[in-house]
Design a protein around this nucleic acid. Structure first.
Lengths: 196, 196, 196, 196
DNA sequence: AATGAATGAGTCTTCATTCAT
DNA sequence: AATGAATGAAGACTCATTCAT
């Protein structure tokens, strides 16, 4: 059993991995369980040994990707004292995560408006954003950020990163300048220029 | 027989209308043609008398909604001399269209990343945004707007309206203040404050 | 109204003609009434004005082609005193009819084993062959032809022509020599060589 | 459990068997998959577990019957030194195969002109006749058979057997004498009487 | 734990036929 | 005579899920 962890991928993980790829490429209803099984190198029945249903697989993938983004947020805001530096770091962190994991990004986009994701899971995922809201709240109180509805501010800044990702996926490449333009756009939008 | 045309809805229109509603509520693959037919009060075969396939219906709906938004853009920018006034008017125009037509909005969101929409139709829809790009271009040249990638600027500002719509749909209601905050957020993002 | 008969083709005939072409090319179940109507330049309903059903059209076409072949048999045996001359003339007559009307031939082939043709019509068509059986009967009685089951002799000689047609349709072209070889093959098969 | 293999018919075989019967009786387009499934005692889905499509089933049946006939040809020409004896043996072999397997015969007749059979399969089936062509070729070279187009000779003699089968199926019964008449008919047609 | 044969409800689509105009 | 919109039963095929091994 020793050394088995090296390069060992459990069947369960293989199923999740291939499901993600397939669904991203073909869409949910063009990703039959039989196909997922074949790609993962397991029998159809095996999938049902690990998961209750197709929906369960999709929900699990969705939540796990959202968690990854949550981790990126936490990680990239660590040890950043300067407010702008922190803002840029988090923005770039999310941006980089998505463009280096385009499959995960597409999967999220495809599912975020779908009735397949349970509302319970939606709620869980919201929490992964809470660190951002926390720091925004403080900046508003310190009069560094515009006094704006907190949820609105969070969504606007996050979606601006998404816009950037979208543009990048469309264009294939994006200059550092353009990335900077987008972040500065958001920064101007949220900051009290006279105090910062 | 007179005045019969008032309030007369053709079967074709009924089909489109009910397809839109159903797909928005249930998603494409949970909106069988049989169901659409039933809701529209026609036989399944009748649908195929007017449309070649399910995909054709979806494409037609998609393009027509996008066209409506295009018309709103044109309409709401008419007779607006002041740059900011025009920007606000267009922003509010789009926002209002979506929140008064939430079904159309949801339909769009569900389809915009779908492979069902032909690339030809995607191209057609892009054109409906051209008025915006035109005015942005001029404002950049006049140094009133930040010198930013045009496509980026267009996408950021449009998506900020989408964010607002999304928040409103989530919350059920939105104060005029919050709407204003979002528009001002974008305005700060695109303008050269010293020249405006 | 005068001169109208020149080149005037009734809608009824157009329907029959286009149905024949379409069914030959695509097969019965890939020849929808709507398509026949379109090719014939009439409305679907118009077809039902002239014919009770699709099956009726097919039966009518089938019988009329079989009648044409019957006419060819009668025509090509006229004024032929010599037995062999008559045999060759009829054989060539049928052969030529089929290769100059390949659509009719294919139509027949496609339908002859089909349950669509009523047994009544099958019986009617059998009669078109009676002239052949008559002359064979006489030749057998005169000891010029082998004493063979009459029906068998009729079917063998007719089917040998069909074989020739089939070979010709396969090859695209057939030398006069080969045609002659086939007819002589049948002739040797039916004749009492010592008496002829 | 022993001897269980005796009389065990796999679902796959049951499907093929019932499809053959049904298609022969009703024709292809009146043999829905649902009906085949019911007769075979399986679910519709099961058919698609074993076959890709209805066309695939039909092709497989067609080729396998043609192969049977090919085997009969090989078998019945074995150890036949005398030319006429061999000719009669093969003719009777084919005749007997068809009349003892009338369903297979009808199936073949119905399909041989159909576009459903792929040209690849048509080519494969042609090969099953090659033994016949080989022996004819030799007999022609030895001046025992008439110098006739080889393909023509092959088609004429084969189709004469078919004619016999057809007559038998029509009449219900056929005397040994009539069978002999038909074979002698062909024999006279192909042989150089002076050399044989 | 793992398999994959088997299921059958459900999908989109076709098409002969009808009927009001 | 002629139209073609409207019908809905029926067809081929898919696929999530089950279950005996």
């Amino acid at each position: 059993m020793y050394r088995m962890n090296v390069q060992f991928i459990s069947k369960r993980d293989k199923i999740l991995r291939e499901a993600t790829k397939l669904i991203t490429k073909k869409g949910i209803s063009d990703s039959p369980m039989s196909q997922i099984a074949k790609k993962a190198g397991v029998a159809v029945g095996t999938i049902y040994h690990y998961f209750k249903s197709k929906e369960e697989i999709i929900n699990e993938i969705y939540v796990s990707i959202r968690k990854n983004v949550g981790d990126v947020i936490i990680e990239s805001s660590k040890n950043k004292v300067d407010l702008k530096e922190a803002f840029k770091s988090v923005s770039l962190g999310i941006y980089n995560y998505y463009i280096t994991n385009p499959i995960e990004y597409s999967f999220l986009k495809q599912l975020e408006h779908s009735p397949i994701i349970t509302s319970e899971n939606h709620a869980v995922c919201e929490l992964y954003f809470s660190p951002i809201f926390g720091s925004y709240q403080k900046a508003i109180e310190a009069n560094l950020f515009i006094n704006m509805d907190l949820m609105l501010m969070g969504m606007l800044t996050y979606n601006n990163i998404i816009t950037l990702v979208e543009l990048r996926l469309k264009s294939g490449e994006l200059s550092a300048e353009i990335v900077d333009q987008a972040i500065e756009f958001s920064w101007r939008g949220i900051t009290n220029q006279k105090n910062i």
